[in-house]
Design a protein around this nucleic acid. Structure first.
Length: 887
RNA sequence: GGGCGCGUAGCUCAGCGGAAGAGCACUCGCCUUACAAGCGAGGGGUCGCUGGUUCGAACCCAGCCGUGCCCACCA
């Protein structure tokens, strides 16, 4: 056996040789292609549930803008997927595109400068008129003709356009995700507007309806006047906006026996709602108003008589302590209308403009109101305030304030409250069950559980799932029309489940002909579509084959992992739990891993509106996927992390280092350090074997005789145990830290110490080369989940197949007689460090031979000097190492 | 207004009851036969503030301050 360097052979069969000059260039294309060709990440459905690790991946928003935040969190998931795959679990890791819903509509509207007009008939050439032929889409057509009026499209043409654009977006995005190296099975990709998703969503809806968990009702709901759709609680956000208190003077009826005041002053920030005023409300204990309860006030300008009433929600500290109740200014108005049985006086239409209304008003008031019809809220406010001032009914000047106002999170104007017919899923009455589910779920990190609990505890209404939009899953419902052509909402017509998916706009109701649509005595289809969360809350069911592929369903559900960001706990996580409880009575997954946000280097949240978004392709190309993944892996679960190209540089350096040290180790004559197989660390007694791994070759290291070599392997064994435990707990950051720290010590100290011996001959050389090969094998596997490209690159130099299907290393090596002592490894590092310091302090270059080197007597590990003396002297280029008590 | 997270070297962060750590940046030295896209050495911190518990606190408790996120009832 000789330690001479091996000549690099030409490509030997399926394995590539160890290259003379290893490089990261081109490895991504090469291995991505190989993974695809070999089906490396293909899901094998032959496994049973306990052998499967299933992941309910967040559907990628194809219509949104991509930024490195996506790369960040998806990398975390991919690390878990790769880890469990190497542990022997069959990983169910499909990916979906969340393409339905408002974001897509908005993107299509802006991109093509079009609007949907459901009243238009379908025209087959409508898209061609926009310059669209086949799959060829013009570049952002809308931008060029922004000054023109948008092109109006029929509902069907608009949906076609949405489908075309999302299909193209999805192709672009898939390229990026593949480049990042996500180990998903791309053959199982689904979309939330696809026929499977529509069928699953409609089936879940019908079952919910049958179970009484889904209902529809005519109710006041938050309404976006621009998108003209209802908006659920989860999609609303508060924004601080400028407003102003206006102090209005109401009249009082004249039957006050005490001859008290004849007017009453009321503060409001929404004076334009004065014509919709139906009452004044003060707190029952408010001494200022107690004597007025039961009396009647008269509204200024409009002369409408309104009762003065008491309700505990009135806040004596706000304004003058008495509030104007309108139809509807805010959610309190809704409560007051209901609790105090007040009349409804609607003045706002669905487009946010004043509508003709039959008001209880004076003649002059009615005449004034007529001039407001068709005005927007802002215009009407201006006119009403001006008139109030003219007539002396405004006290002083409006007092500017900033206050929180509810907005649709994607909207630009404040939400109004409009009464309309909507579909709901029951959540309020299941609050306790939902809270119990949150306690049962495992959260990573744990503190995120609180977000969920607070949200569920704070629910104020059932989940509103209908949207008055177009690109979504239609409600599978028709209504019979009575003899006047009015829909009978109390007698909905439902399809059979076997007919799903259906579109009530194009499919006739069962028992009717298409010609009966819209006719008295005929039918009409429900025009609404489901909110995007109503479909994406079913991702486990859609991806897992619920009622579609029961065999698959049994193998993957309930899923192991739900990874997602913390901003959608109240939406995606909450709604998925709600659906699973309703459909199966169980949790949809075992663990929720919540990732943080990416901030810019100034620690500001990266978002489109801030304009600080970094798109991912550029860093992927500049630093490489492994390097970007390395940066992502440095962000702890749930922690917001700064975008940091420095870390990507470090990651790239690590990848390069792996290439170089591998070239060094594999450059020796081949040594098989493992007897009986190529899977060191497997099947070591006392170490739990990965589930699903059967027949993994056992092995023990042979020929490793030197104490230092054994010590290094013993330390490596500890690292394996540590990294494994960390990854099992989804703490990929700690796992990487431990592995990386060992790796650098391995390179800088161990390799330097044994290099000379390895180049030599005899048992000492064989021991070093065996240990080096063995350690490299293990280190590559430990790095593989984070750095999939470079590790598979090195793997391909000397091993068959992909490292990503190789078993995860398990347990301590050479636990058999003569096991190494990790303390010797630490001592060796400390000793070589002390020698280097001594030579540096003496101004002697490291490689300069010296007769002896004196190191401090308190150097840690001095007791192990004898065990590593020969290697130390060789590495230190010195004849002797002595302990110097002077330090 | 409420909840939660975070404040440790210039920067990004680990450590979470027993002598202040890593990487980057910075300074100096080395073209050492895996790697100069490298290697070695070094300087640099009253661990946000104030109290408390303890033999001992970056770490536990209380209260502040700063910062970020989530939530909240628009008069």
């Amino acid at each position: 056996m000789t330690g001479s360097r091996r000549a690099v052979p030409e490509e030997p069969g399926s394995r590539r040789a160890v290259p003379e000059k290893p490089s990261l260039d081109g490895i991504e294309e090469r291995h991505a292609r190989r993974w695809e060709a070999d089906g490396t990440y293909r899901f094998d459905r032959g496994r049973t549930r306990d052998e499967v690790y299933s992941i309910d991946t967040p559907p990628l928003t194809a219509s949104g803008s991509l930024h490195v935040g996506h790369v960040y969190s998806y990398t975390h998931t991919d690390i878990a997927a790769r880890f469990w795959r190497m542990r022997g679990r069959e990983v169910f890791y499909p990916v979906g595109w969340d393409d339905n819903g408002l974001p897509t509509e908005r993107r299509v509207q802006n991109y093509f400068h079009v609007r949907c007009d459901p009243s238009l008939p379908y025209h087959p050439d409508a898209l061609a008129a926009l310059g669209i032929t086949g799959d060829e889409l013009p570049e952002a057509a809308g931008r060029k003709r922004r000054e023109e009026a948008p092109t109006r499209l029929s509902r069907r043409s608009f949906i076609e356009l949405c489908a075309l654009l999302t299909a193209r977006d999805e192709r672009v995005f898939e390229t990026l995700w593949r480049r990042l190296g996500l180990s998903v099975d791309w053959s199982m990709t689904y979309t939330t507007i696809g026929s499977t998703a529509r069928r699953v969503a409609q089936r879940a809806f019908l079952r919910g309806l049958a179970a009484g968990e889904v209902y529809h009702a005519l109710a006041p709901t938050a309404w976006d006047v621009d998108f003209q759709t209802a908006v659920a609680q989860a999609e609303q956000e508060d924004r601080e906006v400028a407003g102003a208190y206006h102090r209005l003077v109401f009249g009082l009826d004249n039957d006050d026996p005490g001859g008290g005041a004849h007017t009453i002053e009321v503060d409001t920030t929404r004076p334009e709602l004065l014509p919709a005023c139906v009452a004044l409300v003060a707190h029952p204990d408010d001494a200022r108003y107690r004597s007025l309860f039961g009396r009647t006030a008269v509204s200024p300008l409009f002369g409408a008589p309104v009762p003065i009433l008491a309700h505990h929600l009135a806040d004596p500290g706000k304004g003058t302590g008495i509030a104007m109740v309108c139809t509807y200014g805010d959610v309190n108005d809704v409560t007051w209308q209901r609790d105090l049985r007040l009349p409804i006086r609607s003045i706002l239409g669905r487009d946010g403009r004043f509508i003709a209304a039959d008001l209880t008003s004076s003649t002059e008031g009615s005449a004034f109101y007529a001039t407001l019809v068709g005005r927007s809220v802002t215009q009407a406010r201006r006119e009403i305030v001006a008139r109030l001032a003219e007539t002396g009914r405004l006290v002083g000047e409006p007092r500017p304030i900033t206050h929180p106002v509810k907005f649709f999170e994607k909207g630009d104007r404040p939400l109004e409250i409009v009464t309309s017919r909507q579909w709901f899923i029951r959540t309020l009455e299941h609050r306790d069950t939902l809270l119990a589910a949150g306690r049962e779920l495992r959260w990573q990190p744990e503190f995120m559980r609180r977000r969920y609990e607070d949200w569920v505890s704070g629910l104020t209404s059932d989940w509103l799932i209908s949207r008055q939009r177009y690109f979504g899953v239609p409600f599978p419902v028709w209504y019979p029309l009575d003899e006047h052509g009015e829909p009978r909402h109390d007698a909905p017509i439902l399809p059979d489940e076997s007919a799903l998916p259906i579109d009530p706009q194009s499919d006739p109701a069962p028992g009717y002909r298409e010609a009966d649509r819209g006719r008295p005595g005929g039918f009409m289809g429900d025009t609404d579509v489901m909110d995007t969360w109503a479909t994406s809350s079913l991702t486990p069911q859609i991806a897992g084959g619920w009622c579609e592929d029961e065999d698959l369903w049994r193998r993957v559900y309930p899923m192991d992992l739900r990874p997602q960001a913390h901003d959608i706990i109240r939406t995606w996580l909450f709604t998925t739990v709600t659906r699973a409880l309703q459909l199966d009575g169980s949790l949809p997954w075992h663990t929720a891993a919540i990732s943080g946000f990416i901030t810019d280097p100034d620690r500001k949240k990266m978002s489109k509106s801030t304009g600080n978004v970094v798109t991912p392709m550029q860093p992927l190309e500049e630093y490489g996927s492994d390097a970007v993944r390395y940066w992502a892996a440095g962000g702890r679960p749930g922690a917001d992390t700064a975008y940091d190209t420095n870390q990507m540089r470090v990651g790239r350096r690590l990848a390069t280092k792996i290439l170089n040290v591998s070239r060094f180790v594999l450059g020796f004559e081949p040594v098989d350090p493992v007897s009986g197989g190529s899977a060191p660390f497997d099947s070591v007694p006392g170490v739990s074997e990965a589930p699903g791994v059967s027949g993994a070759p056992g092995g023990s290291v042979s020929g490793v005789s030197e104490a230092l070599d054994r010590a290094m392997l013993a330390q490596l064994g500890l690292v394996v145990a540590d990294a494994t435990a960390a990854l099992e707990a989804l703490d990929y950051t700690r796992a990487l830290e431990r592995v990386e720290a060992f790796f650098w010590t391995f390179c800088d100290d161990y390799v330097e110490l044994v290099k000379g011996r390895a180049y030599g001959a005899g048992p000492g050389s064989r021991s070093a080369r065996s240990a080096l090969t063995y350690a490299l094998d293990v280190l590559l596997r430990l790095f593989a989940p984070v750095l999939p490209y470079v590790t598979d690159e090195v793997w391909s130099w000397w091993r068959d197949g992909s490292i990503h299907r190789a078993p995860w290393p398990g347990g301590a090596p050479i636990s058999q007689p003569g096991a190494g002592d990790p303390a010797v490894f630490a001592a060796a590092s400390a000793l070589i460090g002390a020698v280097r310091r001594a030579k540096a302090a003496a101004g002697v270059p490291m490689r300069t031979e010296t007769p002896s080197v004196a190191i401090p007597a308190d150097t840690p590990g001095l007791a192990h000097l004898d065990a590593v003396r020969e290697d130390l002297l060789a590495a230190a280029h010195t004849g002797a190492v002595t302990a110097d008590s002077d330090g």
